[in-house]
Design a binder for these strands. Sequence first.
DNA 1: ATCCGGAACA
DNA 2: TGTTCCGGAT
Length: 357
Amino acid sequence: MNNNHFASILLDWYSRHKRDLPWRNTKEPYIIWLSEVILQQTRVAQGLPYFEKFLENFPKVGDLAEAPSDEVMRLWQGLGYYSRARNLHQCAKDIVAIYEGKFPDNYKTLLKLKGVGSYTAAAIASFAFDEPVAVVDGNVFRVLARYFGISTDIASGSGKKEFEKIANEHISKKYPAEYNQAIMEFGSLQCTPNKPNCEDCPLKLSCFAFNNGLVNQLPVKVNKIKVKERYFTYFYIVCGDHVVIKQRSGGDIWQGLYDFPLEERKIAHANEFKELSILEKLGLFDPKIHFNPETRFKHILTHQRIFANFATFVIDESHLSKLQKWAEENGYELADFPKLESVGKPRLIMKFLNGEK
DNA sequence: ATCCGGAACA
DNA sequence: TGTTCCGGAT
């Protein structure tokens, strides 16, 4: 592409900075496939010795196909993501059994192989067969997002499609293999996740992120915050005009706010108050316990879903001093209602106190 | 302690 | 579409 400034710069940069790695400078699909599978989720320095071990033990795909799975797994030991090794082995067997020992020579068919997804299929198709199909890995996401100023979430399905489209629009049709290697090497060595070397970058004059101060904001990866479910049982302990409260401390939500004595379970567990240790301690005070099944709250935070039950304990006023002592010994406070009113409380607690649902 | 990352599978 | 798989680097 004559007017493909982006690709030309990358190709030129690559010719000057490429690392000499053993799986480069070959068109042998078996070697390329082996290196790519090993390098999935894996850094070069860690993958390199495994690549050498595998190639030494299994010089041809048929050797790998014939190997006992125990041997394959043992050689993979320590590399992680062991399904890769199982898929690798199965793929080798399939190459022999279905493809007569020869790797498919195009992206579409390569995609059918076990353990070969869009990235690896594009890598093999371009490196071994010069098919102009762009690889999109973490490096490519980063380089494209920064250079073209794309803020689409790279973790989303639509984001992946968008980046694939742009990558394929800019691949060098003449040197697809070199281009794919170049953009990944560039992302790996120059346009790094942290502290990229922008000052010394050949693309900086036309880089959107660099020129708009967005290098550290791109690419956008929406936090796949795993929403954790938590199950709370609160103890609303009332004695005359006092109530037991507790100020929340660090390392958790609602730091510094006040709530009530709390016991948390890891799993949903309907109404099993009898198992909760606080009941035994409170047994001293001969409390009346009200558990109203209606007071179940579902409280949503960004990263947590809290299912809360409230159990109300009404304790005879004659036990006030005893309760005071118990509260202090257990890190709680005995507050009158004006005090309870005055302290900061999580929305969940407010809902309970206000009788909201 | 948090970040990073391809493919399979549900 | 979301979750799971692993180890290393920071």
